[in-house]
Design a binder for these strands. Structure first.
Length: 614
RNA sequence: GGUCCCGUAGCACAAUGGAUAGUGCAACAGAUUUCUAAUCUGUAGGUUACAGGUUCGAGCCCUGUCGGGAUCACCA
């Protein structure tokens, strides 16, 4: 058993024996002792002073005596201001170290027989992926990995938003202005190619709107509908949607396209399929670069009609109600939310209708215990409504729904805005971090032994490791600033810094292999140093970190842990000699310890999707 | 305006209600001429936005204020 749980249990037992009060062992606080104090772990005694009816130090002393007597692994204890500091026997650490290196799955839990779905990425098909998608994808991916590590079977899904106004804009634009060009003929990556037509559409539309504003019709509309004091500029800004739907020629073409699509017009469907396929080919490349994949894809074109049956249900159950115009509503005001339309007056479905239907369908198909939606925080309200609705419908899976909400990513240059063309493209960013990694390696002078291809692959790994680590180290809920230059820095809190620790360890292990060094004398090493102890304590903590990360859907815990471990290893490396250790036992011990650190680093970084060099 | 989220060093980020609020970058001062120098150590930098409250103990929980963001469509 983990020493921390051993201690928790023993303390709970002590409290019960000494003071007759039952205590939940998992509530006993056992933390690594801060470096300034003597000890490996510290028990917080304050919670027990009331039942002990003693001063904190006296209670600590009594509990300490009890532990020293009853827990074989405890070597000594001391008390500082209500904290009971415990020293653990070297024999325990020896055994622990051996158990780690002999267990290739260390940190992972066996299957728990439960299933969880994680939905992430879920892009629109009218333009390429951008920086926001990268955060989404990395969060989804690492959460999937963490859940898997703690025993879940994970189904990774995305819903591809392949229909609707957006893709129709690209289609209209390409038909009108495309002159039959293709990704092949232009040499443009195919999802970017489709996105370019979307951008062109928006440009043309803007031009049309500008021209229209000069017409007599527009002027008189402004005069008759303006609010008092409203400037012409502001009026037309507000009016844009209405204009697009009722006055725009391009807008009319898009609506026609959409109607034809919904009527299954063969030519429209063929065009739609062609453009979407271009986009998918492009996405696949980006997903490949990021090293992610999915188990199951859902397409909005298949699911957008879904949800009518669930709405029927809701009507029968009285969860929903119908207004005179035929639209169906849901009143959530008692939950602090608003009224919400779930089906339009004309009987067509909305975003929420679709999500209701998809939720039920997926549960029938997958039968998961939990469903995690990785979606940006601008949709917090939507998910509140969605989950509350499913709860009221008494859907059996409602309690297992979770919105993993994440904040905006910005660059140091400022916020991304579609309209201002400052959106950071995912592919560009990937290229950029690899470029920076390459540039930095030039200053250093890389190992000459590698082939060109190997060097390139190394740099790609460094760049991707940098990108991934930098993004995932921040708590999902917080908005963050991604600094490409800083991310690739080889010093500091970065992916490459951690990757290097691993490379270093790998180098050691290869040498062990080559020289046939015998590590079996490791357990005869009797003077564990502080730098070694802090590594052991950190390794011990790994399984808890993974568990917590999975429970809280928070990969930043694993990222910060990895950095911390790498940092401790560097300190160890600097202060103590490994190969040139004082004795053969010390050498064997340190090599074994290094192996364990490498093993954990590989595992923890692997959870984050960073496998580069590992 | 209602609702929700955020506010920690110059900057970027940590900190299950527990000890003196940490880490990196940037700055300064050193060490290590090795086991790959992609390293390490030290100095400096803080009224944790502000004001109250709960607690043995609050960056964390509660109330209010200020600042920033998101959202309040028969869009997705």
């Amino acid at each position: 058993m983990n020493i921390v749980s051993t201690l928790q249990n023993a303390v709970a037992q002590a409290v019960e024996q000494l003071y007759g009060e039952a205590t939940d062992p998992s509530k006993v606080l056992v933390n690594p002792t801060p470096p300034d104090f003597t000890g490996d772990y510290s028990v917080v005694i304050f919670p027990f002073v009331k039942v002990a009816k003693k001063s904190p130090d006296a209670a600590a002393s009594a509990i300490g005596e009890y532990l020293a007597k009853n827990v074989a692994d405890i070597k000594a204890f001391n008390i500082v201001k209500g904290f009971l500091n415990l020293e653990i026997n070297d024999a325990y650490w020896q055994g622990f170290l051996q158990s780690v290196v002999s267990d290739s799955t260390y940190g992972r839990l066996p299957s728990n027989g439960k299933k969880v779905m994680v939905e992430f990425s879920s892009p629109n098909t009218n333009k390429p992926l951008h920086l926001g998608h990268i955060r989404n994808i990395l969060l989804g991916w690492s959460c999937s990995n963490m859940l898997q590590a703690v025993g879940y079977e994970v189904v990774k899904t995305q819903i591809v938003n392949d229909r609707g106004v957006a893709i129709c804009k690209s289609m209209v634009s390409w038909l009108k202005f495309g002159e039959g060009k293709t990704p092949e003929s232009t040499g443009i990556k195919s999802d970017h190619f489709v996105g370019d037509w979307y951008v062109l559409f928006e440009q043309k539309s803007k031009e049309e709107y500008g021209a229209w504003q000069e017409t007599a019709e527009a002027k008189s509309l402004f005069e008759s509908k303006r609010k008092p004091e409203q400037l012409e500029k502001d009026f037309f800004k507000d009016f844009k949607n209405k204009w697009f739907n009722e006055y725009s020629i391009l807008g009319a073409e898009v609506r026609e396209m959409l109607l034809k699509w919904e009527a299954h017009d063969p030519e429209t469907l063929a065009l739609w399929k062609k453009m979407n396929d271009w986009v998918y080919a492009g996405f696949d490349k980006t997903y490949g670069d990021l090293g992610v994949s999915f188990n199951k894809l859902y397409y909005e074109s298949d699911t957008y009609q879904l949800g009518k049956d669930i709405v029927e249900d809701g009507l029968t159950k009285g969860v929903f109600f119908k207004k005179e115009d035929g639209s169906i509503w849901l009143d959530l005001t008692d939950a602090g939310l608003d009224q919400k339309v779930v089906v339009r007056a004309d009987g067509t479905s909305l975003y929420i209708t679709q999500d209701l239907g998809t939720a039920r369908m997926r549960h029938h198909e997958l039968g998961c215990e939990r469903y995690v939606y990785v979606v940006a925080d601008e949709q917090n309200y939507h998910f509140q409504v969605l989950f509350e609705t499913l709860k009221r419908l008494e859907e059996p899976y409602a309690a297992g729904l979770h919105h993993l909400s994440y904040g905006l990513v910005e660059l140091p240059t400022g916020r991304m805005k579609t309209r201002e063309g400052t959106v950071v493209d995912a592919d560009d960013l990937i290229t950029e971090v690899i470029r920076i990694a390459t540039e930095q390696s030039k200053d250093r002078g890389e190992a000459e032994t590698l082939s060109e291809a190997e060097k390139r692959e190394n740099l790609r790994r460094v760049g991707m490791g940098a990108l991934k680590f930098f993004i995932v180290k921040v708590h999902p809920k917080k908005k963050m600033i991604f600094n490409p230059e800083e991310s690739v820095d080889l010093q500091g809190q970065t992916g490459p810094y951690i990757q290097y620790s691993y490379v270093r360890i790998n180098g050691l292990m290869q040498r062990v292999e080559k020289e046939g060094i015998d590590l079996s004398s490791a357990n005869r090493y009797t003077s564990i140093q502080p730098q070694e102890k802090e590594l052991l304590v950190a390794i011990q903590d790994y399984q808890n970190v993974v568990l917590k990360g999975a429970e809280e859907y928070d990969p930043s815990l694993v990222a910060n842990y990895s950095y911390d471990l790498a940092k401790k290893y560097h300190r160890f490396w600097h202060d103590l000699s490994v190969f040139n250790a004082e004795t053969p036992e010390a050498r064997a011990f340190r090599l074994t310890l290094s192996r364990a650190v490498g093993q954990v680093l590989k595992s923890s970084m692997g959870l984050l999707g960073v496998s580069g060099g590992m």
